[in-house]
Nucleic acid binder design. Structure first.
Length: 699
RNA sequence: GGCGAGGUAGCUCAGUUGGUUAGAGCAUCGGAUUCAUAACCCGAAGGUCGGCAGUUCAAAUCUGCUCCUCGCUACCA
């Protein structure tokens, strides 16, 4: 694609869902790269608006509120405040952090809906859906469980059975029940509106598949293309719920917009809230460049569905790029809120105060730009100590200390280093080399920023400090100080120039360190900064004769003791301190009461697994041969993700012996192995405390 | 199961038309140095480029198969 000239840029960062605090995965995925990019654009002097806000609608909010015993409004108020504060404390420089429960957002979303409705209409469709009479809500698929018609798993979800992997619809479940109340739901007719995504297929092929083949990241493009190639279906955009944005139609009483429909419009309403009457040019002027920063789980929505919505509305511009990141793991495992396996942003800020740049630096240097990345505290400590402290911090410090030592804190003049001596000639040539290397790094850093390659950009920043260190080591001003102070002055003058350029260059990555450097240098450098970012060349922000402030350390080493606590916290995530995690730990609701006779019908036995193999073509099923004491039977169990066939052999298992046989993948399963399911979905065998005879009954 | 993205030195990653001894930073080891937060600077060592097979004079790079990780698979937000 040809490089297009834009007048301004609208940058969005994914709206975080207001049901829990932020963790480092969120930051690394969207907010840090977005913030870095926006800071860069601002420094260039571009007209940029950076919007974000809390996503506060949806069923999960209403359920979360119920669990905490508060209203949805109170619930989102709490998490909105928490997230807004954490972002602010961390220094993410949103121009506005809005929220989707604001009136202006409701109005914007309804206007958006009305326009599309008037222009080309939505598809209306009435269907029977499960309804929880006790809670008075319609149940989304994930909130219905029942017995899987395929494998007999009694806890299959309405969309899929996690045991056998079969895709289901709620209607297929046997004995469905609501996960909210535990009650059996009833079928109730309800009308919904669907967005005709299928009508945009041809347009998407042109705009996205052809138009963004080259300039979008390969992971983003690949997934979009695959989605489009599979064919698109109309998508429901309304829900039966009393929390959300009312559907603006007279015949839509009690309906709200589906949260996925209103959430991205939140970017628009946030801009409206911020800019007032001036907002439209950030969304409707073709000379505005729209960039969405998101995590990979949001790709399809931001690259396909939202653009189609914008296109359908008709007056909006489309995203120019969607630099989605992959995921961040923590100490080799997925970040999990339910197991409290996470580093929470607000906790980090409280427990490691004054270390904002450190987290930015580490997260940026492992940024999951092309594949999932792993955050470890050991790596954090190492990167801070041996890069941020040892290379950048140390360079700045030694230049400052040298200047104070030899020139009493006054910037020495850059005397002409004529070839009057061999030593001076050498310094001159080292200077020329350093300058050339520095210019190259600056050019590459800015090119990387333009290409959303923030890891690379930050590496080039550090490279500038490396070049500075080498320059000092090569010129050895502390030796020249014995007989040629003019040369020392010239060397330090240049070294201070490098520090000044580092102060300017580090602002998008390390805002605190940047400010600290400017303070030490006693400059503001606004004009030079603008020049630096626009011309891609070194500037001279520190004039000779200028008085410096006293030297102070930029960064401190992270001591082992500081890491101890963090590592320990992850090792024993017994009870979480965060409300969100505590709530996810809550066991499933109690099922309806039964009488003893109901229980007595079930014949539970202990058996021994004599053979086990993986079912071919199945991800989840193991085929077990079980000696039940009475017979030897084949039982299929959806535990392949949790146990290998090898480890199953010889194990005693508890199983339902009188369950009607069921055929799965062509093989009959004669029973069902009992498993305990942890909050993270992990399955563990139920075994007798000590070995018993096969066939022993369980009661 | 289908689709998408990844699998390159201990760690984080480069390697865009297939072509000399596969690169960088950090870590490790050795050396040098003392202005500096035992920091910096120089040097060395370290990789069967996930595996197998194929195309080719030549493959990390192309083709097929296969293994591993993550995501999507359409009403969980």
């Amino acid at each position: 694609m040809k490089e297009k000239k834009f007048k301004r840029t609208t940058v969005t960062a994914a709206l975080p869902y207001a049901n829990g605090p932020l963790h480092i995965g969120h930051i690394a995925g969207a907010y840090l790269p977005a913030d870095t990019y926006v800071r860069y654009l601002r420094l260039k002097g571009e007209d940029v608006v950076f919007v974000c806000g809390s996503d506060e609608h949806g069923v999960a909010i209403t359920l979360g509120a119920k669990k905490e015993g508060v209203s949805p409004k109170q619930f989102v108020d709490k998490y909105h405040a928490l997230m807004k504060q954490a972002f602010a404390d961390f220094g993410i420089s949103f121009d506005i952090y809005a929220r989707t429960s604001n009136a202006i957002h409701h109005q914007t979303s309804q206007d958006f809906f009305r326009t599309i409705d008037a222009k080309q209409g939505f598809i209306e469709e009435t269907s029977d859906q499960y309804f929880d009479e006790q809670e008075n809500i319609f149940l989304a698929d994930r909130y219905i469980v029942g017995t899987c018609p395929n494998c007999g798993n009694p806890n299959a979800y309405g969309d899929q059975c996690e045991k056998c992997g079969t895709s289901l619809s709620p209607r297929q479940l046997i004995n469905p029940r609501s996960t909210v109340s535990g009650q059996a739901p009833v079928l109730k007719a309800t009308k919904h509106w669907y967005f005709p995504l299928d009508r945009f297929e041809a347009w998407l092929k042109e705009w996205l598949v052809e138009g963004h083949k080259e300039d979008w990241k390969v992971n983003v493009y690949g997934q979009c293309k695959s989605w489009i190639d599979q064919g698109l279906q109309p998508r429901s955009i309304t829900r039966d719920l009393d929390w959300g944005i009312p559907v603006p139609r007279p015949d839509a009483e009690g309906k709200v917009l589906y949260v996925w429909f209103d959430a991205p419009i939140g970017y628009i309403s946030a801009t409206r809230e911020l800019k007032g009457a001036d907002w439209e040019k950030y969304w409707k002027d073709p000379e505005t460049r729209l960039i969405h920063f998101i995590g990979k789980d949001n790709i399809v929505f931001h690259c396909i569905i939202f653009p189609c919505m914008l296109k359908a509305e008709g007056s909006f511009i489309l995203p120019d790029n969607v630099p989605a990141n992959e995921f961040l793991n923590l100490e080799g495992e997925k970040i999990s809120t339910s197991r409290n396996h996470a580093v929470w942003l607000h906790e980090y800020l409280a427990e490691l105060p004054g270390r904002r740049d450190e987290l930015r630096y580490v997260l940026n240097s492992i940024s999951p730009e092309t594949k999932d990345a792993d955050f470890t505290w050991k790596d954090y400590q190492q990167k801070v100590n041996s890069e941020l402290v040892a290379i950048l911090g140390n360079f700045v410090n030694r230049v400052m200390v040298l200047t104070w030592k030899y020139f009493d804190g006054r910037v020495p003049s850059a005397a002409e280093l004529a070839n009057t001596s061999e030593k001076r000639a050498r310094v001159l040539s080292l200077y020329q080399q350093a300058h050339e290397d520095l210019e190259k790094s600056v050019t590459e850093m800015i090119a990387a920023l333009d290409g959303f390659r923030f890891r690379e950009a930050q590496f080039q920043l550090m490279n500038m400090a490396r070049i500075g260190n080498k320059f000092l080591a090569d010129t050895e001003p502390w030796k020249l100080a014995k007989d040629d102070m003019e040369a020392v002055g010239a060397i330090l003058n240049y070294a201070l120039t490098v520090v000044g350029n580092l102060a300017i260059a580090s602002e998008p990555f390390l805002p605190d360190g940047s400010a600290n450097m400017l303070t030490q240098l006693n400059i503001t450098a606004r004009h030079e900064s603008h020049r630096f970012w626009n011309t891609h060349t070194l500037v001279e922000p520190v004039p000779a004769g200028h008085r410096l402030n006293p030297a102070s350390l930029l960064y401190r080493n992270v001591e082992d003791a500081e890491m101890e606590g963090q590592v320990q916290k992850l090792k024993k995530p017994v009870i979480s301190t965060t409300p969100m995690a505590a709530e996810s730990h809550a066991p499933k609701p109690l099922k309806p009461e039964i009488v003893f006779d109901d229980f007595g019908k079930i014949d539970l036995r202990i058996g021994t697994v004599t053979a086990a193999e993986k079912m071919p073509k199945s991800d989840k099923l193991l085929k077990l041969t079980v000696n039940s004491g009475l017979d030897v039977r084949t039982i299929l169990s959806g535990i392949a993700k949790h146990y290998t066939p090898e480890e199953m052999v010889g194990k005693q298992v508890t199983f339902v012996a009188n369950l009607a046989p069921r055929k799965m993948m062509g093989i009959e399963s004669q029973g069902m192995i009992l498993m305990a399911e942890d909050s993270d979905g992990k399955l563990r065998l139920l075994q007798p405390h000590e070995a018993v005879m096969p066939g022993a009954s369980v009661s």
